[in-house]
Design a protein around this nucleic acid. Sequence first.
DNA 1: CCAAATACTTTACGCGCGTAAATTATTTGT
DNA 2: ACAAATAATTTACGCGCGTAAAGTATTTGG
Lengths: 333, 333
Amino acid sequence: MEEFSAISGISRPTVSKYFHNPESVRKSTRARIEEALERYDYRPNIFAMNQNRKLTKNVGIVVPLLSDPYFAEIARNLEQRCIDAGYRPTLFSAHGDPDLEVEVLESLRSLKPAGVLLAPLGRASHRDALKKFCDDVPTLIFDSSVDELGIAFVGSDNFQFTSHITDYLCRTGEPPCFFEMKTPANPNAHRRRQSYLDAMTAFGHEPHVISVEGEGWSFEEIGRVGGHQALSNKQFPTNTILCSNDRLAIGLLTACYEQGIKVGRTPDCAIRVAGQDGHPHSRYTCPPLTTISHDYDAVSKHAAITLLAAIDGHVEPWKSTRLEGKLILRDSA
Amino acid sequence: MEEFSAISGISRPTVSKYFHNPESVRKSTRARIEEALERYDYRPNIFAMNQNRKLTKNVGIVVPLLSDPYFAEIARNLEQRCIDAGYRPTLFSAHGDPDLEVEVLESLRSLKPAGVLLAPLGRASHRDALKKFCDDVPTLIFDSSVDELGIAFVGSDNFQFTSHITDYLCRTGEPPCFFEMKTPANPNAHRRRQSYLDAMTAFGHEPHVISVEGEGWSFEEIGRVGGHQALSNKQFPTNTILCSNDRLAIGLLTACYEQGIKVGRTPDCAIRVAGQDGHPHSRYTCPPLTTISHDYDAVSKHAAITLLAAIDGHVEPWKSTRLEGKLILRDSA
DNA sequence: CCAAATACTTTACGCGCGTAAATTATTTGT
DNA sequence: ACAAATAATTTACGCGCGTAAAGTATTTGG
């Protein structure tokens, strides 16, 4: 920057000011800097910039598992919103590992972020480490809530999700049983099970929950293997299966296919399968998956706006916002 | 660090040395530092660390599209290998946008990376910007090659991919036609088409290429829409369709389902569909997709090893390594 | 026990930039 | 044209650490 300021004929502090905000310098100097910029393509070092700044424009985005297109999609959405608001997002994934999650947060500190958008791993997260981080850095929790951490929580209304799609399934055929992982990684899963139980009771039907074994994040495989077992053992008491999430449903669809069981809502089909999440892939399963979708746009918009407002000093008491999902009617149920 | 060194009773330079490599200090001082570390959980600022270091341990990983599980998977694999080798990987995605790709590389410079693993967007990439970057930073190109940039290229042998699966399809049924995007984003697509043409000629069959319209990275949708058109217009001259990649095949499977066309290799099926890539999702389509898979492990291993060797000074002339794929036999073809 | 080797401490400077304070130059309003 | 307002410059220090050099303490080998 020293060299560049000499070349442009403008003092270094003014050049520094220019890069912070080009509008903050006189038009004539801006022109001189930009003219010099064309001859010498200089760019300030982002990390040195943030070294001694009171308020950085850095925003950290942390998701539990980037190889899940759901998180990849919502992360991309959040990134774009941050950029549009003039912030510099950096994306991190915990890769499903609680230790790595803590590690990521620690290295995030070095970035001196103005704020962080964090989707915790959930059940497996190291609570105390998360809390410590949230105490130091303005953090908005999204997707799955952990206690009342951070400045706010934004996610989907899992109770509405499950009761709504359960309602739909009951109205259009046999009441559904509920297909889930025995030890889900995500706390939302518990809400969904509870909501299923509540909804079934409210509608006057008897609930049935089929919980399958399986650890980790390979939900499709867990759904497939668990599906095979449940199908073979005739554990599904009705012809309609509501899955705790879309990835599990995708695995179950595969199991059905492999057993020659036709899935769909037409009379020639043996069972109906529905998912929950509106996973990017759910449109392309065979049959396309009926599901209840997160309002990706609304969740990420609300999350970004809330965090950026907090960064700008609009402090408000902790608040949980849960947005409704939209039923997506396709052919699987 | 100053404060912490005072607390631990060890001088700051020694503490600095400790964090660079704990083994490099005497056992007794190490013990004192680690004891102090338990009372005061201090962690050095990663970005300040790299500020004045000759050789950093940073490695940048850049992929064209993180929401594609294929790239997410290979990126995770690469990350792990870098960590295991004692490096600090940072992941970036160009989100399918050539301008963002350049932007990402620019901000990567600030990280002063020891090296970069770059999977370029391909056709759309800004060649000159990539070249400039590769001239300054040791960069290994993977997945899709752009000129002879960087220190080396590591990817899959697309010619082997397509000729191998074409061979398989010819041996087991009608010779395949080839289903692809008219203007593919990725240069590998051209190799695959050419390889298909070559292979068919070599086997004594007439090749047929069906190119569908569509821009961008929504391959499944492009495959689905293009598939519908091709099916309706009876453009598939044989009952066997080899798709240029798995995502296109997934979309085509959906189109087939929506038209009531049964896909598979049994006599009751109307057509066979095969993909290429070994996409993480290909196992769970209905029917599960026969495909030829990248050797994820071998590619990422070779890429990481080659880059890290180059970082360690093992300079070799530019070299292209293309690894063979493995045929994955499933039910779709 | 002593000399050599090794590890540590002190001191000092550098990385690439932000930023505050005091001066000086330029623009603006009238 | 002149004072007031605004913008740029100069100077200086700071961020959180790496690292080199010279000196001091500790360990090692015989």
